[in-house]
Amino acid sequence: MIQMIIQYEVKQSLLGQYREAIDKISDMLPEFEADMFSYSQSDQRNMFIESFYVPTEAHYHAMKKLRLSRSHSVFGRLEDFVPGGLERIGFMAIKQKR
């Protein structure tokens, strides 16, 4: 199992719309075998951290590719919210020992 952590900044003026988008994102994640989704705002003003689990490294790489896709109807919405666009999103994977 892989814990996937995603970090990015959200434009102050779009925080309300971002919260709607993150709800749609969290609703969609189970379709990709992701579970235990959570997100939080860091101490730094508009930095957000998402965390969830995927079953394999292949799932991690596929999800990362999807999350960076501007053309994806749900994940691509973050393009407008993140200063500098999707390429400014940071990804990290933590492999869980069984």
Rank of each mutant, 00 (worst) to 15 (best):
Y8N: 11
G85D: 03
N46C: 14
F52H: 03
L78A: 10
M63C: 04
S71R: 09
H72T: 00
D35W: 04
V82F: 05
E87W: 04
D27V: 00
H59Y: 12
Q17R: 12
I94A: 06
S42Q: 15
V10S: 12
R67N: 12
S26A: 10
A21M: 08
A58M: 00
F32Q: 11
G16W: 14
K95T: 04
N46V: 03
E57Y: 09
D80W: 03
A58S: 10
M28Q: 06
N46E: 15
S13H: 06
I94N: 05
V10M: 15
R45I: 01
D23G: 08
M47W: 12
Y60C: 14
P30S: 10
F32I: 02
K11E: 14
Q41M: 11
L66P: 00
M92Q: 11
R45A: 13
H72R: 07
F52C: 02
M28P: 01
S71L: 04
Y60S: 08
M63T: 00
F91C: 12
I89H: 03
N46R: 09
Q96R: 15
R70Y: 02
G16N: 15
A62W: 11
E9H: 10
E33S: 15
Q44D: 09
R77D: 00
R67K: 08
R70W: 00
Y18G: 11
N46A: 08
G84I: 07
A62K: 12
F75H: 03
S26I: 08
I6R: 04
